[in-house]
Simulated scan of single mutants.
Amino acid sequence: MATPDFVLSLRERIGNELLWIPGVTAVVLNPARTHLLVVRRADDGRWTPVTGIVDPGEEPARAAEREVAEEAGIACTALRLLDMRALPEITYPNGDRAQYLDICFLCEADDSQRPFPADGENTEALWCPVEDLPPMNDRFREQLALALEDRAEARFRR
């Protein structure tokens, strides 16, 4: 994942100290809810929905739409909040420590749009049938399940 300039600027001041960062996950489904947009990350090869960091002052739903456009080259619309959770702390190979507040949105896009790895953060981007997904971690599978339940309320943990 490319590090935003504002994070690099903060890192100049705080070094490797723990940084709390708002992030987004975009669970992008086609209108029929039969296909999920997935990307294969260039850094570790894992399959995920599109994820990213919210810029200072940016509305989180807009950040989800922007990240999809930047990473997969397609337009989507954020429909509703699905899930919010604090992710475990991460220590990167350079020693930087971060913890993300993940704000997950259900998004919709026309699956006639051809996704592609638009910004170098991913090596692949494609529509996958929700019944035949590549391996993904439990968080992403839980968030997809919430999207497919199609309940109006967002989920959060206590």
Results as ranks from 00 to 15, higher is better:
62 R>V: 10
75 A>M: 08
143 Q>R: 15
93 P>H: 04
122 N>R: 12
14 I>V: 15
74 I>N: 00
103 I>A: 01
13 R>M: 13
143 Q>P: 01
106 L>M: 08
138 D>P: 02
48 T>E: 08
142 E>F: 15
102 D>W: 03
119 D>E: 08
123 T>L: 14
148 L>D: 03
56 P>C: 13
13 R>C: 08
101 L>F: 09
40 R>F: 03
152 A>N: 06
125 A>Q: 04
101 L>K: 03
6 F>M: 01
83 D>Q: 07
114 R>Y: 01
48 T>K: 08
97 R>G: 01
10 L>G: 05
79 L>Q: 12
56 P>E: 12
48 T>N: 10
17 E>D: 15
74 I>W: 00
73 G>D: 03
89 E>Y: 02
113 Q>D: 04
102 D>L: 12
155 R>W: 13
86 A>E: 10
125 A>N: 07
51 T>P: 02
105 F>R: 02
135 P>F: 00
123 T>Y: 06
68 V>W: 00
72 A>D: 06
40 R>M: 04
1 M>T: 13
9 S>D: 13
36 L>P: 02
86 A>H: 02
15 G>R: 12
124 E>W: 03
141 R>S: 10
11 R>I: 07
83 D>S: 11
140 F>L: 06
93 P>E: 04
21 I>L: 15
61 A>V: 02
8 L>N: 13
158 R>G: 10
128 C>N: 00
138 D>N: 10
101 L>P: 01
100 Y>M: 06
72 A>M: 07
145 A>F: 08
45 G>R: 07
80 R>N: 04
139 R>V: 09
155 R>Q: 13
86 A>Y: 05
142 E>A: 13
152 A>V: 10
118 A>T: 01
75 A>F: 09
142 E>D: 11
11 R>E: 13
98 A>I: 07
147 A>N: 05
98 A>G: 06
88 P>A: 12
144 L>Y: 08
127 W>N: 03
56 P>G: 13
53 I>H: 02
129 P>H: 13
123 T>I: 15
29 L>D: 06
52 G>T: 02
63 A>I: 00
29 L>W: 03
118 A>Y: 03
90 I>A: 15
141 R>W: 04
64 A>H: 05
78 A>S: 14
145 A>L: 10
91 T>N: 00
116 F>E: 05
94 N>K: 10
80 R>E: 05
17 E>A: 15
5 D>F: 05
90 I>W: 07
89 E>I: 00
53 I>Q: 09
83 D>A: 00
146 L>Q: 08
97 R>E: 02
85 R>F: 06
41 R>H: 12
125 A>E: 02
9 S>Y: 06
96 D>N: 08
3 T>M: 14
39 V>T: 15
24 V>R: 05
122 N>T: 10
73 G>K: 02
45 G>I: 03
13 R>A: 15
138 D>T: 14
77 T>P: 01
73 G>Q: 02
78 A>R: 00
135 P>R: 07
76 C>V: 08
155 R>I: 06
83 D>W: 14
42 A>K: 14
145 A>E: 15
137 N>F: 06
60 P>R: 11
158 R>K: 10
149 E>W: 01
30 N>R: 01
129 P>F: 11
60 P>A: 15
75 A>G: 09
104 C>A: 15
58 E>T: 04
155 R>T: 13
